[in-house]
Design a protein around this nucleic acid. Structure first.
Length: 775
DNA sequence: CAGTGAGCGAGCTTCCGCTTGACTT
């Protein structure tokens, strides 16, 4: 008979803990929650707002196994995580396994080390029902919001859409960012930089510097260059100050996702998949965490390892504080299990992610980097300037040159955090020659370059996660799924945005000559960014108008405060639910029953000049469509799918009408119409229910009947060649010739044949062909 | 991968947070 049964959430954790506890303990895993609201129903009583839980089908086997083992054990230890969800998991286990108070112990530990677990076993406690209730409140609220709002969208926008406390706000961020970018007015300015020379041995040393002020107009910039022609450049001041840089804290889920995206080019879900494998093979600690805490063990071994590799000067053990909103800190930071392992066996991706985690962890336990930052101010002096500056207190024009010297690299030896800014700031970039106050520098070249102010940038997957975390919305376990959901629902897609080509001027003063050149550049182009779709925009605007409370960026933060009060025992959870639902439910009813004149997002783009009927864009059953005429007309309205490169918000009447120019009938052939149409795969010719694609580059608007006929004939010939052999034994079996050589088709399915058979494909016997099919 | 291309209707769809597995290709 087993003495003790310990239940944890994760099987990998179970394995490790079993090793620590010895043979009197059996350790099993619950694999997360074992009970939840019903999947297909709201599963919440509309009067009492009490949840109705069930054990999902896929968990039934596991639960009966747990039941069996629990019955056998003298004592059961519930060791799920020490947070809201973990407490609820333990409570559900209690309920489902029928555990009694006396023989059941709730234990928690923050790190998976032998002493920590033995310590936890020494101090069992009881279930914290307040914390459990806070979880129930969270669960019920999310279900209510999701399952009440989504049907409103099905009715008002499009079937199969979804809304939720987290995903809808994520979409809102992206929609609003896109609008900010659209509204942004780029303004030109002139940035002046100079190449000056400190006279000395040989050719002297070059000093690169920037003017501290920008000019608004080209005239001002030119006037300044003019002024520089006979000016003297004199060092006005030199300041040196020591600067310290601190390493970033070790990884959480969110920061790991961001850095893996920037440094390794991983998507958010890729990072999680690779991290999961590293965790399962025992290389890293748990990968879904919001904590930056490191175990004392890790801090100790890091110190040893850093001292061994880089010397004692580089070691600086430290603890970091988590200050992200709503953090629950049930786990440690993401770190290598053994700091002594600098690299591991595994796939390329696994090794690269591990390397990143190792370096980030090591750096966090290393000394500050010490730099010396030097700033040199250089005055522009000429007679005119001198004369005017004595009477007016106008700020003098100053060139500034900065240099940084690394005095001690500290943690920078192993790791430097990336930023989202594309400009790479080189740390040891500008080395300054020795100068002193009063030194006069010789002008070599001064350029005034026209630049354009940049608007906000679009979100990437990782920067969206960062923003969500900042707002306290979502949890480490949901960042990646949320990003997938909003893409699956087609609210958002990842894509490239082409920038606009802009011409800009560069003025150069060299010698006594000022030359002006025009150049072209592409500005504001972005790759792999999150862009809102028409559906995303319409859904967002609809929700913003009708459910602004739920869409508020602070909604989660506010309900979290209520959950905290429940956890502290200051509020009854069911009362909170009632209070929320009393306001929420009538709004849902009102909105879903409102007889709206237009569908959500519908917009009239103009009047069709040929029929005099109105032209609309709206979200149809299958996505955005343009419609000519209304549904209550005698004649049926005409529809056209909106192509992906056009947006509902900005579609013009001309663009809308253009979509109706196809299909067009170009003539007759063999007694039936020849029609040119545009499909998902480009333009095509339709004749006698047969389709032929138009060759690339052919304009569907100018194709003639003769060209179309030729295409039809050609296709027929090809089709003939396609059927290599048919079989009397079975008409379902055929040998066909495809784009990639001969293949076998049987009953609607295709099968490949070995390369060696290709030459005699037309002479295959029935038995040979069937053998391949069966294989 | 082996040919695709409508329709705007019926019934279905849906949340967030814990955690992995088991179908092959």
């Amino acid at each position: 008979m087993q003495k003790n049964l310990v239940i944890v959430e994760s099987p990998a954790k179970a394995k490790t803990i079993e090793r620590f506890l010895g043979k009197d303990f059996k350790v099993m895993s619950s694999y997360g929650h074992i009970r939840d609201l019903k999947k297909k129903e709201i599963s919440i009583d509309s009067d009492t707002l009490l949840p109705d839980y069930e054990i999902p089908e896929e968990k039934k086997r596991l639960v009966s196994e747990l039941k069996q083992q629990a019955k056998k054990a003298e004592k059961v230890w519930l060791a799920s995580d020490e947070d809201r969800e973990g407490e609820a998991i333990s409570w559900h286990l209690c309920e489902v396994l029928g555990l009694d108070e006396v023989n059941t112990n709730r234990i928690v530990f923050h790190e998976i080390t032998k002493p920590a677990i033995l310590e936890a076993i020494e101090h069992p406690r009881h279930l914290d029902m307040n914390l459990v209730n806070a979880q129930q409140a969270r669960r019920v609220l999310d279900r209510l919001v999701g399952f009440k709002l989504s049907p409103v969208l099905w009715r008002k926008v499009k079937p199969a859409l979804s809304a939720g406390r987290v995903q809808s706000v994520a979409v809102r961020l992206i929609v609003e960012r896109e609008r900010e970018i659209q509204a942004f007015q780029s303004e030109p300015y002139y940035h002046v930089s100079a190449k000056l020379v400190l006279p000395g041995e040989g050719d002297g040393q070059v000093v690169n510097c920037q003017l501290s002020t920008r000019f608004r107009t080209h005239e001002e910039a030119l006037a300044f260059l003019e002024q520089c022609r006979d000016a003297e450049f004199r060092v006005k001041s030199i300041t040196r100050k020591p600067v310290k840089r601190m390493p970033a804290p070790p990884f959480t889920t969110s920061t790991l996702q961001q850095e893996a995206a920037r440094k390794l080019g991983f998507t958010v879900s890729q990072t999680m998949m690779v991290a999961q494998r590293l965790y399962e093979s025992g290389h890293i600690t748990y990968m879904r965490t919001d904590s930056v805490n490191l175990s004392s063990l890790c801090i100790g071994t890091s110190k040893e390892e850093i001292t061994r590799l880089y010397g004692a000067d580089y070691s600086h053990p430290r603890n970091f504080q988590t200050h992200s909103k709503g953090a629950q800190e049930a786990h440690e930071a993401i770190r290598p299990t053994y700091m002594s392992k600098q690299d591991i066996e595994g796939t390329g991706q696994e090794r690269r992610l591990y390397d990143l985690i190792w370096k980030r962890t090591a750096a966090s336990q290393m000394a500050d980097a010490e730099l010396e930052k030097t700033t040199v101010e250089i005055e522009v002096r000429n007679e005119q300037a001198a004369a005017s500056s004595s009477e007016s207190a106008a700020t003098p024009n100053l060139f500034v040159s900065t240099g940084e010297v690394v005095k001690f690299d500290g943690f920078l030896k192993v790791y430097r955090e990336s930023t989202d800014d594309e400009q790479t700031d080189t740390l040891e970039g500008n080395l300054l020659p020795q100068m002193k106050k009063g030194d006069v520098l010789q002008r070599q070249e001064i350029t005034a370059c026209e630049r354009f102010s940049q608007g906000p940038t679009r979100y990437t997957e990782a920067s969206l996660v960062h923003k969500l975390e900042e707002l306290g919305i979502g949890r480490p376990s949901t960042y990646a799924p949320t990003i997938s959901t909003i893409q699956q629902r087609e609210y958002v897609h990842k894509g490239d945005k082409k920038g606009t080509e802009q011409t800009f001027t560069i003025d150069t003063l060299k010698g006594q000559k000022i030359t002006t050149k025009n150049k072209k550049e592409l500005t504001g182009s972005e790759k792999g960014k999150l862009l809102p779709t028409d559906i995303g925009i319409v859904v967002n605007d609809f929700l913003m108008e009708n459910f602004p409370d739920i869409m508020d960026y602070n909604f989660t933060a506010r309900v979290e405060q209520d959950f905290d009060k429940i956890a502290e025992g200051k509020t009854e959870w069911n009362k909170m639910m009632t209070r929320f639902y009393k306001k929420f439910e009538p709004t849902v009813e009102k909105v879903i029953n409102a007889r709206a004149e237009h569908k959500a997002g519908e917009r009239q783009v103009g009047i069709d000049p040929t029929s005099g009927k109105p032209v609309f864009v709206k979200i149809g059953r299958f996505g955005p469509v343009v419609q000519i005429g209304s549904a209550d007309d005698k004649e049926k309205p005409r529809f056209a799918q909106l192509p992906s490169d056009k947006a509902m918000e900005t579609l013009t009447l001309d663009e809308a009408l253009e979509l109706f120019r196809l299909p067009r009938t170009v003539g007759q052939f063999e007694g039936s119409d020849v029609v040119i149409g545009a499909g998902r795969f480009g333009p095509y010719v339709l004749h006698n229910k047969k389709y032929v694609s138009l060759p690339k580059g052919t304009d569907p608007m100018t194709v003639t009947i003769d060209e179309a006929m030729a295409l039809i004939q050609e296709k027929r010939q090809q089709d003939e060649k396609r059927h290599l052999k048919t079989f009397a034994e079975d008409p379902k079996l055929e040998v066909l010739n495809g784009r990639y050589g001969p293949y076998i088709a049987y009953d609607g399915k295709n099968y490949r044949m070995p390369k060696a058979m290709h030459a005699r494909a037309a002479e295959l016997t029935y038995d040979e062909a069937m053998k391949l099919v069966k294989k």
